[in-house]
C-alpha cells in the first residue's frame, strides 16, 4: 500500500504540520466534549486484527478514496489530506474515530453516515493506522550520532539542507524528514536522488527579454508566471509574457552519495535522518 516517496516537498509539509498541531489541540478539545460513548477515552482499538484492517481498507477504498485517493495519499485539488503521514486533525485512535464519525467542521470532510456501525469506523481507524508504523520499533544498522557528525562534517549535507533552522537553503529542510519516510526511502534519496523529485526542487532556466539567463529552484510555476531562487539565493519572479523563454529540468540538483560515502557512513546518515521527527504528543 505504502509507496516510497523520498524527499517530498518539506516546505509544504512544514506548513501543514504546524497547522496540524494547532488544529489537533482545538479539535480534541471540541471533540471530547461531544464524544460518543465508545471513544470516551483512548482505551485502544478493539477492532485491530489483520481482518479488521482489510475490512477497513475495503471500506476506505469504497467510501473515502474519492477524495483521499486510492492510496490514501490525499488530493490537493479537493483539499483532502494525505493520511499516510502524520494526521492534521487527529493523533490518537479516539480522535481519528471522531473525525470520521463527526467530520471536520468547515471543510468538505463530512461525517460518516449515521447508520454505519461503530465497529466499521474502528476498522477504518485500524486501516488508517496500518498506513503508518511505530518508528521506535525499527532497528537500524547505523549510528545516528555519527550520522549527525557526517551531516555537518565531511558529507557537507548542511551546506544545502537545514535542520532545526541551521544549514543551507539549496535543498529541502530535513527537520522532520524521518516522519514520512522509511529508512529505505531515505537511503534511496541519497543514492538515487533523481528517482522522484518534488516539483519544488525542479530547476527552471529562464531567459529574460534582456537575453540574460537565470537558473534556480522552481519556487513557483503557474499559468502566467514563474518564481525561482538562484544559487546565490536571490528570489526572482517573472511574468511569462515578459520573458524570452524558459526551460524546466525535472532532475534533482543533489549528487548521488553512492560511492562518495561508504556503506557504513550511509547507514549512519540514514539513522540520523530517521531520527529527525517531531511527533505530535497526544493530550
Amino acid at each position: 500500500m505504502r509507496r516510497t516517496h523520498p524527499l517530498r516537498s518539506p516546505g509544504r509539509r512544514l506548513i501543514r504540520s504546524l497547522t496540524a498541531v494547532a488544529a489537533t489541540a482545538g479539535l480534541l478539545a471540541a471533540g471530547l466534549a461531544t464524544l460518543p460513548q465508545v471513544a470516551a477515552e483512548d482505551a485502544g482499538n478493539l477492532y485491530n486484527t489483520d481482518v479488521d484492517i482489510r475490512m477497513g481498507q475495503r471500506y476506505f477504498e469504497r467510501q473515502c478514496s474519492r477524495c483521499h485517493g486510492f492510496d490514501a495519499k490525499g488530493n490537493d485539488e479537493v483539499g483532502a489530506p494525505d493520511l499516510t503521514g502524520s494526521l492534521r486533525n487527529a493523533s490518537t485512535d479516539a480522535s481519528i474515530f471522531n473525525v470520521i464519525r463527526e467530520g471536520v467542521s468547515g471543510t468538505a470532510m463530512l461525517p460518516v453516515a449515521a447508520d454505519v456501525p461503530d465497529p466499521t469506523v474502528w476498522q477504518l481507524v485500524a486501516f488508517i493506522n496500518s498506513l503508518r508504523y511505530d518508528p521506535n520499533s525499527v532497528t537500524l544498522e547505523g549510528d545516528a550520532d555519527s550520522g549527525l557528525a557526517l551531516f555537518n562534517g565531511r558529507a557537507e549535507c548542511n551546506s544545502c539542507h537545514m535542520v532545526d533552522g541551521r544549514g543551507g537553503r539549496l535543498g529541502p529542510d530535513l527537520s522532520r524528514i524521518g516522519e514520512d519516510n522509511t529508512p529505505e526511502d531515505l537511503m534511496l534519496a541519497m543514492t538515487n536522488p533523481h528517482e522522484q523529485v518534488a516539483p519544488r526542487w525542479w530547476t527552471l532556466r529562464v531567459t529574460g527579454s534582456d537575453g540574460i539567463e537565470r537558473e534556480g529552484f522552481r519556487m513557483g510555476e503557474d499559468s502566467f508566471g514563474v518564481r525561482i531562487m538562484d544559487v546565490d539565493e536571490n528570489l526572482w519572479s517573472f511574468r511569462k509574457s515578459e520573458i524570452e523563454s524558459y526551460e524546466r529540468i525535472e532532475d534533482s540538483t543533489m549528487p548521488s552519495y553512492e560511492g562518495r560515502l561508504s556503506d557504513d557512513e550511509l547507514d549512519d546518515l540514514v539513522a540520523y535522518l530517521f531520527s529527525l521527527r517531531r511527533e505530535v504528543q497526544p493530550q
Binding site: 475495503r58 477504498e61 469504497r62 467510501q63 478514496s65 474519492r66 485517493g69 486510492f70 492510496d71 495519499k73 490537493d76 485539488e77 453516515a113 447508520d115 518534488a198 516539483p199 510555476e221
Partner: peptide, 25 residues
C-alpha cells in the same frame, strides 16, 4: 483500479478508483 462491491442502498457503489503516479505539475 477495479474492486468487487455489492450494492447497498445509500452506500457508495463505485467498484474501484484511481491514483496519480506523477505530480499534477
Amino acid at each position: 483500479f477495479k474492486r468487487d462491491e455489492d450494492y447497498e442502498e445509500g452506500e457508495r457503489f463505485t467498484g474501484g478508483g484511481g491514483r496519480y503516479t506523477q505530480p499534477m505539475d
